[in-house]
Nucleic acid binder design. Structure first.
Lengths: 97, 97
DNA sequence: ACGGTCACTTGACGATCTGGAAAGCGACGG
DNA sequence: CCGTCGCTTTCCAGATCGTCAAGTGACCGT
């Protein structure tokens, strides 16, 4: 529905969020903790970036009880994938991909 | 798995500077005015970004009198090209390219 | 039931970064 | 001289960022 024209998306472009999107782009879902380790940031930092991605409608946050603990898992929404793809396309264009 | 450590270069990563580097990467030299038009920013903004790239040793600024006017032309230094290439490689890695 | 721990979340805060507007500046051209 | 061109610099106000500390809710051991 929402036409995603290739352009710079500041929500996606910030390094930590670009990494999160990049990780989520190749899997169906990834645990909060795993993303945090891969990105190499603190809980609070990841939490804040995830919140921004969530508010932009790019990431879905799912909480489920696993191993007697509430674990948070993240996944890209269709909108998020579109935004990420568009942004990557734009990056390639700019960087002479 | 060890946490992936992204070597983002903040000097190159900012949108306007990424664009400047992208432009300069495919030509030997480009006029200040042409870069300004391509990037779509004001004189002052471009000037400030160019200054940062220059201080990082990524861009060389050359002033020459042409048509009775001092024209400024920009070009990537070897260091700048290396930094840009490395950054683009990092972007591709992160974005799954 | 109660304190402690886990897995995040939120708030406070200082530091950094940006772009726009406008004044500055050196080199011509009239 | 004075004005214009082509940037440069300064001032400013807003946005963003990461750190640290405190907060929240669920669950576990005692």
């Amino acid at each position: 529905m929402t036409a995603v024209e290739p352009r710079f998306d500041p929500v996606v472009h910030a390094p930590p969020r670009l990494q999160v999107c990049g990780l989520l782009a190749v899997v169906e879902t990834m645990d909060f903790a795993t993303v945090r380790e891969q990105v190499g940031v603190s809980d609070s930092v990841l939490s804040k970036h995830v919140k921004q991605l969530e508010e932009a409608g790019y990431v879905r946050v799912h909480k489920a009880t696993r191993a007697s603990r509430v674990r948070t898992s993240l996944s890209l929404t269709a909108t998020g994938r579109a935004a990420f793809d568009a942004h990557v396309a734009e990056l390639r264009r700019i960087t002479g991909g």
